[in-house]
């Protein structure tokens, strides 16, 4: 009973915050509602008994992805009036597309019947005596190993892409070379001289450092 109540409670918050993501006037609020939606989705996973997925969702999406997202949105100066203008103009088209999709979904759900052979065809039924973290690990690192590795390649491509598209070598920036600094000895940098009165010191060209 409590589980059912909790399910409806969190689903309601999830849906409400999803609506708020779209309708919020302030982009930062929209992102915060998105985060709330993520958290609630994680809780729903938890209620479904998928605790590993729940916490990974919280760690990855809420803890890392959304932070960066929030970061960007906070720094942008988004002109919401301009955005809303487009929203008004495309709303009818959007509504039509949504309606069609909803109709299709309705058809799918109302006519839903899994195939007779479907449960038997499930590749990996949920094991009884394992926590679902262990069960997932057993699958991902054995049967689905190539997919796991390829997902890594996808991330590698994303990383290369981020660097290719944004990294610029600044020729003029001043880098600190710690190793060079530490390797310096007093003899290299310091010379004690006893200048004669009124004569001053002449610095040899080799000791003049280019600035």
């Amino acid at each position: 009973m409590i589980v059912n109540l909790a399910f409806y409670f969190f689903s309601f918050i999830l849906l409400a915050s999803a609506v708020m993501v779209v309708t919020s006037r302030n982009p930062v609020h929209a992102v915060l509602f998105l985060i709330l939606a993520f958290v609630n989705a994680a809780v729903l996973f938890l209620l479904a008994g998928a605790e590993f997925l729940a916490f990974i969702l919280a760690i990855v999406y809420v803890g890392a992805v959304a932070v960066l997202f929030l970061f960007v949105v906070m720094m942008l100066d988004v002109d919401f009036a301009a955005l809303k203008e487009g929203f008004q103009r495309y709303a009818p088209v959007g509504a039509l597309v949504a309606l069609v999709l909803f109709g299709e979904l309705f058809l799918v759900v109302s006519g839903w019947s899994t195939l007779a052979g479907a449960p038997a065809a499930r590749l990996y039924p949920t094991p009884d005596n394992l926590t679902n973290t262990a069960a997932l690990g057993n699958l991902i690192y054995t049967s689905y190993l190539p997919l796991f590795q390829l997902s890594g390649m996808v991330l590698l491509v994303a990383m290369i892409g981020a660097i290719v598209l944004t990294h610029r070598d600044r020729k003029r920036s001043l880098h600190q070379k710690l190793s060079a600094q530490h390797a310096r000895t007093p003899e290299q940098t310091l010379r004690l001289v006893r200048p004669e009165l009124g004569a001053g010191v002449s610095v040899p060209a080799s000791e003049k450092e280019a600035t």
Partner: peptide
């Protein structure tokens, strides 16, 4: 996947016969 319970090509070919619902077609 929801309709058939599998993602494998071979298993799908075996399952998706003539009599299917909206789900798989959409």
């Amino acid at each position: 996947y929801g309709f058939t319970g599998t993602t494998s090509f071979a298993a799908l070919a075996g399952l998706l016969g003539a009599n299917i619902g909206y789900g798989a077609v959409i």
